[in-house]
Design a protein around this nucleic acid. Structure first.
Lengths: 160, 160
DNA sequence: AGAATAACCTAGTGTTTTACTAGGTTATTA
DNA sequence: TAATAACCTAGTAAAACACTAGGTTATTCT
């Protein structure tokens, strides 16, 4: 389980899709402009998301991307795992010389932590973000100004 | 909140210190050999850990590093924050052109998730790993072989 | 049918981060 | 006084990140 800017890009982009799930597909050009990520980089990320079945691509005018499953079946862990290569090279590599055994000990402890973290992120779904009434309202109307939304969303929110 | 191999190195090294907290300081040379990380790289990581007060360095023969606080006051989040630069550049940079406001929306949603993740990792302390009876036994005796420990620690463990 | 759209694909590139090497100095212990 | 091990700095190879540039395919609208 790795967590970097790349994962954040993917998650926020998926949030965008989830918000507009009822409205229709979202183009990568829109996400690119809104979130300040290069179009081609987004395409690469979405290629991986698509291979994992997290999004569906719709070609042609009026097309874009939409969620590949319902929002409550897409977890944050799903998204991050999809874009990170995640070779998971945590398995004892060349540690046979560890006479006291601490290597394997800390390795197991880390693996345990890693599993707990994954479970944590796997229990958080896109639906938990989108099914809040304030957000539903925003996804319904398209003409909302940024300032109004900023008022509706103070810096700190509480999920669930 | 970033999570990478670097963070894992720091966490597992700190677990090592926690395990030997009663026994005495642990040298970076030992950790380097056991965990397969270069000594100088460890020194750089521990320089940051030291600046955050998470470890104390003991010079000279018989020296090494020990925990800077009690294990129950050192969280995983503390350790990861210490070694990652963590400029936290998630704050709306050049997104004023976002006419529909989705950028700020997803930004807040991500920030919320980020806070939840931090809280999660901040609630897990080194003590939770070390205070288990099996591990206490291991830290008591020094002659334990790796195979015996491997038997004591199946791949999947459950914390708390 | 033709033009526009937008997904989809590949190769290459600058930048940053990662992890390491190599050299040192200081403090402590035997 | 010699050995130890923290502590420090500079430089570097490799990987990951994020982007540019060029295309192709499928779909929709005129």
């Amino acid at each position: 389980m790795k967590l970097s800017t790349k994962g954040r890009y993917a998650v926020t982009a998926m949030m965008d899709l989830a918000i507009h799930d009822q409205t229709g597909p979202v183009t990568l050009a829109d996400i690119s402009q809104c979130q300040g990520i290069s179009l081609s980089y987004l395409e690469q990320l979405f290629s991986k998301l698509r291979k994992e079945g997290l999004v569906d691509g719709v070609r042609g005018p009026g097309g874009g991307y939409r969620l590949g499953k319902t929002a409550n079946r897409i977890s944050i862990a799903d998204i991050i795992s999809a874009v990170d290569e995640n070779l998971d090279s945590t398995h004892c590599l060349g540690n046979q010389d560890c006479h006291k055994g601490e290597r394997c000990l800390t390795h197991h402890l880390w693996e345990d932590l890693s599993i707990k973290l994954y479970s944590f992120l796997d229990d958080i779904t896109l639906a938990q973000f989108v099914n809040r009434p304030e957000i539903k309202e925003i996804s319904r109307r398209q003409d909302t100004t940024a300032s109004r939304i900023a008022n509706m969303f103070p810096p700190t929110l509480v999920i669930n």
